[in-house]
Design a protein around this nucleic acid. Structure first.
Length: 110
DNA sequence: ACCGTATCAACTA
DNA sequence: TAGTTGATACGGT
């Protein structure tokens, strides 16, 4: 069995700061990194969580610039419509696959 | 269902 | 500094 390298929140924060990212990015990435397995959140919900409920666009930007798509489960972030949206790590197809694997039924119908 | 507008942050000239 | 883009959201038609 391959053990999943679990990065601690502290390590993530360290990496984020090391990447010279902005406070907003760190907030978003940290929030996403705390999403439990099998749980999903919408861009707006995430934006609301960080304190900018109307910054759903900025949240998307933050994830698009995601420096660690491996550590950050950005595939758990979906649209409020229940669709997948986009994914910078393999494409939405991979994202949907990951979500389905975790137990989430995506509505993204091809 | 489709189109236009609203809203935030980051990038480029 | 100003303009454009982008992993969206919501309302009107």
């Amino acid at each position: 069995m391959k053990s999943k390298e679990r990065f601690s929140k502290k390590e993530i924060l360290r990496l984020l700061e090391n990447k010279n990212l902005t406070e907003f990015q760190i907030k978003v990435l940290k929030a996403v990194a705390e999403i439990p397995k099998g749980e999903t959140i919408s861009y707006k919900g995430l934006a609301r969580k960080i304190g900018n409920p109307n910054a759903y666009r900025a949240v998307g930007h933050a994830l698009s610039k995601n420096p660690f798509p491996i550590i950050i489960p950005c595939h758990r972030v979906i649209k409020s419509s229940g669709e997948i949206g986009n994914y910078s790590f393999g494409g939405k197809v991979k994202k949907q696959k990951l979500l389905t694997k975790e137990g989430y039924k995506s509505k993204n119908k091809k």
